[in-house]
Design a protein around this nucleic acid. Structure first.
Length: 159
DNA sequence: GCCAACGTTGGC
DNA sequence: GCCAACGTTGGC
């Protein structure tokens, strides 16, 4: 089983990498994903020990700011059953939950965040999904080569 | 804040 | 099961 690599988008206004770092365990359930493709990746593909980039979207410029590790696989997203939650889904039943997530734990911070324009301009990253036009998927796969390449650009430090 | 690109919903 | 209408994402 080889480790796989991912990219997690978050609007920092909703949940930022700094917030993750200030969690007691520096971990969080990646809740609120309401897209089936992204759900399937989290539920079916992500395994313990996989690594992912933490990407800040909807800021100028959008950028990769950190690295997280998958520390729990395929757990039920509790917000779907919470009527007070923004992510409440009245059609989901506890016996057959519709939305799943993983737990991620912060591992590295990029001293030099890697911006979307940088990613787009890099010929080595021509296949990277997040650089494609209209790439809205909030949880995406990243190839090992691309991951290592971007990590080196980011000058990471352990957290 | 705009709006193109996408995803989902629901009438038929 | 098609597809128009609607809602959301996210770069710009």
């Amino acid at each position: 089983m080889s480790r796989r690599y991912w990219l997690f988008k978050s609007e920092p206004e909703a949940y930022s990498f700094s917030e993750l770092l200030s969690e007691p365990t520096q971990s969080t359930g990646w809740d609120g994903v309401r897209n089936y493709q992204a759900r399937n990746l989290m539920r079916d593909q992500m395994k313990l020990g996989d690594l992912g980039f933490f990407y800040h979207s909807r800021i100028k410029p959008p950028q990769i700011v950190g690295v997280v590790e998958i520390t729990k696989e395929a757990i039920v997203d509790p917000t779907q059953f919470d009527p007070d939650s923004h992510y409440f889904d009245p059609k989901s039943k506890e016996a057959a939950p519709r939305w799943w997530m993983v737990e991620v734990t912060a591992r590295q911070r990029l001293r030099q965040p890697v911006t979307l324009p940088q990613l787009k301009a890099d010929p080595a990253l021509s296949e990277l999904m997040v650089t494609k036009k209209g790439s809205r998927l909030s949880v995406q796969p990243v190839s090992e080569e691309d991951f290592e390449h971007i990590l080196a650009l980011g000058d990471p430090e352990a957290v």
